[in-house]
């Protein structure tokens, strides 16, 4: 009888350990914060060059993450990229002349979208498009330009 009890207890401990391991992986490793609700609204922005911006890239303001890139499409008529972003609902004061810029983390880091506040009183709402944009800075283009100029 005692033996069966030991087995049951250790099996119970095993199941708990497995569940705890999963919780550890979810909370500590993937850093899910249950408090941060998925309350977001969508904004679009057109860029002439996105150079390696990827889905789920950060959208940040003053270096603080306020959203994620949710979709990247191409407008083949104008040769522009349309980037859709899910922005935290709490950031609801982005004015209609707010700017979006694609920047790089560090010199070789990943690309992210940086939002700069504007001055207008009217605010962007769900589905709006940011018009003041600046595409990605492509190092190769700059080097190419430099080489051509030095040639002259």
């Amino acid at each position: 009888m005692m033996r069966i009890r030991t087995i049951e207890i250790s099996v119970g401990a095993f199941l708990v350990a497995g569940a705890l391991a999963l919780v550890f992986l979810v909370v500590r490793v993937s850093g899910i914060n249950p408090a941060a609700g998925a309350e977001t609204y969508t904004l679009h922005a057109r860029f002439d060059e996105i150079a390696g911006l990827s889905m789920r890239a950060k959208v940040s303001m003053a270096g603080v993450t306020i959203g994620r890139v949710t979709a990247i499409e191409i407008d083949s008529e104008y040769g522009e990229a349309i980037v859709s972003m899910a922005i935290d609902k709490r950031i609801d004061n982005l004015s209609v002349d707010a700017g979006a810029r694609i920047q790089t983390e560090g010199i070789l880091g990943g690309r992210y979208v940086s939002i700069v506040l504007g001055a207008e009183d009217e605010y962007l709402v769900d589905g709006d498009t940011i018009t003041e944009t600046q595409g990605a800075f492509v190092l190769e283009n700059l080097i190419g330009e430099l080489v051509t100029r030095m040639g002259n």
Binding site: L15, A21, L22
Partner: peptide, 8 residues
């Protein structure tokens, strides 16, 4: 379960 424990 073992794999979860393994990764953790």
């Amino acid at each position: 379960l073992l794999a979860m424990i393994f990764s953790a």
